[in-house]
Design a protein around this nucleic acid. Structure first.
Lengths: 171, 171
DNA sequence: GTAAATGCAAAGGTTTTGCACGTTA
DNA sequence: TAACGTGCAAAACCTTTGCATTTAC
């Protein structure tokens, strides 16, 4: 097996290569730190992800990257994304439209955000206006859940569904 | 077109038949109120959904229902579920394992709950232990989001991800 | 040079669609 | 008896896998 490939739905972390091996700040450093190679596909995919306006599907990324590196294959996009997800550099999102979306995990300000999904046009807006209550609520919830259900909480996801500006006005 | 079929990813509500036409308390009444017929597939699928231990995939439901009504087709299960989702009687859930899960929308006590998803074994636990803070937090969040992003909030979903009891102990 | 990474083609799995045949009201 | 609803088979769609080839180190 060329490198860690996750079974669909598994987190597929291989020994010594998953989350936690890439302490560097740069993506190059992170990849190298985990024993992965720096390649053109990885470079251009990360550059695309780094662009503003996230929530791209694998095919979105493939098409955009194809313009600058026409040799790219969709398979590589999937494999690269999966690798980055497992390294914790990318989040795999899902807005209920049957295809996964991906976004770069940012540090600091933008790190913590959730999404508003328009159920009609599928537009997704980042929701960053957090209030202290959320942090407090989540902290308590996690503590309670860990205790009651013996569950080790690793993360959470909050999505709001509704109608965006445009769709709400269209009757 | 026999009846409203949603395009993948659309909510596909037809005129006068979507959410809001089924004021009755019984599923029979709701279907009839929306102009839909009472059929054996719909009956047995709803009975299955009404059973405890939700989060069933279309195929889960198909297999369970098949035992009591062997004539059922998987297509009908999908179409029925889609219909019920659009009528607001069923929630379509997604825990990131590539297949949708469905659960009956309950009224009252059980109405409001979220999920704990084990990222390893995919087990899902209902999380019903709500604290006042959550309600407060969500209320404010929704208000803020509506104003700032001009978004009509219809619902939300909170998921916690982590490791369940068993998986956490398996190192 | 050697193992890792890629690209293509093919397969896999879930969900949707077309259409002729049943069923409900 | 007219629509509505169903079942089957086939298609569509996203994602994964096998394998020969290329590439990074």
């Amino acid at each position: 097996m060329p490198y860690n490939r996750a079974i669909r739905g598994s987190n597929g972390q291989g020994p010594g290569r998953g989350r936690g091996c890439g302490a560097s700040q740069t993506w190059r450093g992170k990849l190298k730190g985990c024993g992965y190679r720096i390649t053109i596909p990885r470079k251009v995919i990360l550059e695309e992800l780094n662009r503003k306006g996230g929530h791209l599907s694998a095919e979105d990324i493939f098409m955009k990257v194809h313009k600058v590196y026409s040799n790219i294959g969709l398979t590589t996009v999937y494999r690269t994304l999966e690798l980055l997800v497992q390294m914790g550099m990318v989040s795999k999102l899902d807005f209920g439209d049957g295809r996964a979306r991906y976004e770069l995990v940012k540090e600091g300000e933008e790190a913590h955000h959730h999404h508003l999904v328009c159920t009609k046009c599928k537009r997704v807006i980042d929701y960053v206006d957090f209030i202290d209550e959320e942090v407090e609520f989540l902290k308590r919830a996690e503590k309670g859940l860990s205790r009651k259900h013996n569950f080790v909480i690793k993360g959470h996801s909050i999505r709001f569904f509704g109608l965006c500006n445009k769709c709400a006005n269209k009757k």
